[in-house]
Amino acid sequence: EPLWIRPDAPSRCTWQLGRPASESPHHHTAPAKSPKILPDILKKIGDTPMVRINKIGKKFGLKCELLAKCEFFNAGGSVKDRISLRMIEDAERDGTLKPGDTIIEPTSGNTGIGLALAAAVRGYRCIIVMPEKMSSEKVDVLRALGAEIVRTPTNARFDSPESHVGVAWRLKNEIPNSHILDQYRNASNPLAHYDTTADEILQQCDGKLDMLVASVGTGGTITGIARKLKEKCPGCRIIGVDPEGSILAEPEELNQTEQTTYEVEGIGYDFIPTVLDRTVVDKWFKSNDEEAFTFARMLIAQEGLLCGGSAGSTVAVAVKAAQELQEGQRCVVILPDSVRNYMTKFLSDRWMLQKGFLKEEDLTEKKPWWWHLRVQELGLSAPLTVLPTITCGHTIEILREKGFDQAPVVDEAGVILGMVTLGNMLSSLLAGKVQPSDQVGKVIYKQFKQIRLTDTLGRLSHILEMDHFALVVHEQIQYHSTGKSSQRQMVFGVVTAIDLLNFVAAQERDQK
Rank of each mutant, 00 (worst) to 15 (best):
E465C: 15
T364F: 09
T364W: 14
V281F: 09
Q323L: 12
L417Y: 09
A505C: 01
L422F: 11
G432D: 15
Q329W: 03
I238N: 01
K286R: 01
D455M: 15
D282I: 07
V315D: 01
Q256C: 12
L325N: 01
G423F: 11
Q329D: 04
I272H: 11
P408R: 01
L399H: 01
P243C: 01
G423C: 05
H480L: 08
Q489C: 15
Q439S: 07
I463F: 13
T294W: 12
I477L: 14
H468Y: 07
I398C: 07
M298N: 12
V443C: 13
T261M: 06
K449T: 01
E360W: 12
P388C: 07
G245Y: 04
A431G: 13
M298L: 12
E361N: 14
L417R: 10
T482D: 06
F293Y: 05
N341W: 01
L464F: 07
R350D: 09
K433E: 10
E508T: 01
G418K: 06
K484G: 09
D282F: 12
T454M: 13
D455V: 10
T364A: 03
S485C: 11
P243R: 01
I451S: 01
A301V: 13
S348V: 12
Y269L: 01
D467R: 07
H372K: 01
D242T: 01
M490S: 10
R340S: 01
R452K: 01
A497D: 15
E290Y: 10
H462W: 14
R340I: 05
Q478R: 12
V473N: 12
T482N: 13
P336A: 06
A382D: 01
L464R: 05
A505F: 12
G245S: 08
Q489S: 14
P408D: 01
P368Y: 14
K367E: 12
Q439R: 08
V443T: 15
D289F: 01
F469A: 13
N288T: 01
T274S: 09
T482E: 05
F503Q: 01
G312M: 04
I247L: 12
D467C: 07
Y262M: 01
M466R: 09
W284Q: 04
F346D: 05
D455G: 10
M419R: 08
E465S: 11
A382Y: 03
G418R: 05
I463C: 11
S481K: 14
L306Q: 07
T496I: 11
T456D: 12
R297G: 01
N424I: 09
S428Y: 08
C307G: 08
V415Y: 12
E401H: 12
W369S: 01
V472A: 15
E397V: 09
A316G: 13
I498R: 01
T421A: 13
C331V: 03
T257M: 12
A292V: 08
P336D: 15
M490W: 09
Y445F: 09
D362K: 13
L430C: 10
L457V: 09
I416T: 08
E324G: 08
L460I: 01
L387S: 11
D510Q: 01
Q326N: 10
L254E: 04
E401G: 11
N288W: 11
L387G: 15
I477V: 10
V241Y: 05
T421H: 15
K367S: 08
T454A: 01
L453A: 06
Y269D: 01
G403W: 15
I272R: 09
D337V: 01
T364V: 01
E361M: 07
S348F: 05
L363I: 08
C331G: 08
G328W: 01
T261L: 07
T389P: 14
E327T: 14
Y262C: 06
Q450N: 15
L276Y: 01
F285H: 15
Y479G: 15
G441N: 13
K446Y: 14
D467V: 07
L347G: 03
T482P: 10
T389V: 13
D270S: 06
V241P: 05
M425I: 14
D438F: 13
E265S: 06
G432F: 09
D270M: 06
Q478Y: 15
Q507W: 13
L378T: 01
S313W: 01
K286L: 01
Q507L: 09
K442V: 11
R374Y: 03
S486I: 12
S486V: 09
L380A: 10
F285Y: 13
I300L: 06
E412M: 07
T261N: 08
A431F: 01
V420F: 11
L471G: 15
Q256M: 08
K367F: 13
R488W: 13
L305V: 10
F285D: 11
P383Q: 08
L471V: 13
T274Y: 03
S428T: 11
G266F: 05
P251L: 09
V415N: 01
T456L: 10
D411F: 08
F503C: 05
H474W: 05
Q476R: 05
S310A: 06
S486K: 14
D455A: 13
Q447F: 08
V386M: 09
Q511T: 13
T395I: 09
K446N: 13
I498G: 14
A321F: 07
D289A: 01
Q478A: 08
P251S: 09
F346H: 01
F357S: 01
V504W: 15
D411K: 15
V375I: 10
Q354R: 07
E258A: 01
E465N: 15
T344Y: 06
A470W: 01
R452T: 01
Q302R: 09
Q326D: 11
V473I: 01
T344S: 04
H394L: 05
A316T: 05
I398K: 09
L306R: 01
A506L: 05
E290R: 01
V491I: 13
S481W: 06
T279S: 09
E360F: 13
L471T: 12
R452Y: 13
T482Y: 11
E263R: 04
V440S: 13
Q487G: 11
S427G: 13
F293S: 04
M352F: 05
F492M: 14
L378A: 14
D349G: 06
D499F: 01
E303T: 13
L426R: 10
Y262D: 03
S428H: 01
T294P: 01
I498S: 15
W351S: 13
K366E: 10
A296R: 01
D411N: 09
T389D: 14
M425Y: 08
L380N: 03
D499L: 01
G393N: 06
R452S: 08
H394A: 01
E412N: 07
E397Y: 06
P251R: 15
L248Y: 01
H480N: 09
R278D: 01
Q511P: 01
V434C: 11
